[in-house]
Nucleic acid binder design. Structure first.
Lengths: 240, 240
DNA sequence: TCAAGGTTAAATGTATACAATATAAGAACC
DNA sequence: GGTTCTTATATTGTATACATTTAACCTTGA
């Protein structure tokens, strides 16, 4: 146990933020992303209760780091803690979803105005894999796989955003709305949803191939628009 | 100590988020906002070390809630904690500031497209007070008062944003850049900075008076643009 | 039978002791 | 005298006991 020649400075890059994190902070970040993903894939559906003690045992830590994660998820609006009751996964109203989509649409346009980034190695293979995964989706509704593909596409789009603030805000807002499909697909054609997702993946791939960030942003924005139109219809029906 | 007829449901609205918070959560929110303000007014300048124990005694709580606050400030990028060293206030690079300003500008335009909100009572008086505070600024540089006016204007603009997500993101990004004046005013005319701030306050007031959200967003965006141009110049000088 | 009140159990929130870690000072050695 | 290793100290990170709060259940009375 002598000096630490090995790992160099005790920092590591991790996640979408790109900020440098110490080892324990990186662990919290991993748990945060894992839980966020589970929430957005409905492993923990809205209304589900997350017991801190259970999560602590599941991740092999004490309640303390778990509480940090839950607090952050609370700031994101994905969970809500109440003393004496528990921490429950939130339900998001259609109106709030639409508001978030407005912001996401504005940011999607901003993607095109930011500095271009050379495509990350393997990004095209990843997108092709997502297309394949789309094609393997049958006629039967498989929301979980749909959600995984959606998250995958989102992650690929993030890689071409050089601006860290734009990346962080986009990521945050995406996960705030990622569960939307579980709410609106009863009112939406499954085939059409899959078709539009597949279409976006292919168009994003082509735009990336010619380093056309503006096109990536617009393609993304267009699909957001179709969801916004649907959301607006739902709200009009409910309101009227 | 019997039943709780008094305060009704144990929730309270607080802060910019508009989310419902329990009593202890509201306390953490208050500490968070207080510390954030102090950081952005340079009561804690970049590089300053925030000792958890000191803050705990200062706010009359234990380290636990203080740690929640510091973690959140860390996610905001305002502080950085390292085990064995301490929690230090960050320095923000000009490049990062410019990236944030790009996003803020995009969101400022989005303000105009959101639902109109009737002016909050007292908002015009508050804006007039800010104008007066501007006029009382002399020729001598008083960055702290300038920062307070700037925060005040920001808070007033937030009140006309009905969309909670847009409000939260705007607030977050504002405080990430709020310290910018302490960095760029050496390169900027003090008189011009005050003049432009005063100008925005008056134009925002007029736009609010005629319920013209689009104008508020554009006025705000225009001032952001002047700062972006300056930032770009600084970056060009440094880079070239 | 129903309602009101008290009791109990369980969850989050807090405080604190302990562990891990990094920095700086000091001692030993060449 | 300079360098390197050790050691001390201060700080954040973790685990855990305790406090506070809520909700459900059970009891008791009319």
């Amino acid at each position: 146990m002598q000096n630490n020649k090995g790992p160099g400075p005790r920092q590591a890059m991790n996640g979408t933020s790109g900020r440098s994190l110490t080892k324990p902070q990186a662990r919290i970040e991993r748990i945060y992303q894992a839980l966020r993903r589970q929430i957005c894939l409905l492993d923990f559906p809205p209304g589900a209760v997350l017991r801190e003690q259970d999560l602590a045992e599941q991740f092999g830590v004490s309640r303390t780091p778990i509480r940090h994660v839950l607090n952050r998820l609370g700031v994101d609006g994905l969970v809500e803690s109440r003393q004496g009751v528990g921490t429950t996964v939130t339900t998001i109203e259609f109106k709030d979803l639409l508001d978030i989509y407005y912001v996401r649409a504005a940011l999607a346009e901003a993607i095109g105005d930011s500095d271009p980034v050379p495509p990350e190695p393997g990004v095209f293979e990843a997108l092709d894999a997502l297309t394949l995964k789309c094609d393997q989706l049958g006629a039967g509704i498989d929301l979980r796989t749909f959600g995984e593909i959606n998250i995958g596409l989102h992650s690929r789009i993030l890689t071409i955003i050089r601006s860290r603030p734009l990346r962080e805000v986009s990521d945050r807002l995406f996960y705030q709305t990622a569960r939307i499909w579980f709410q609106i697909l009863p009112r939406f054609s499954w085939e059409r949803a899959v078709m539009e997702l597949r279409h976006e993946i292919e168009e994003v791939r082509q735009a990336m191939a010619r380093n056309d960030l503006k096109a990536v942003g617009l393609v993304h924005r267009n699909r957001l628009s179709t969801v916004m139109i649907l959301l607006q219809q739902v709200l009009d029906e409910e309101g009227g």
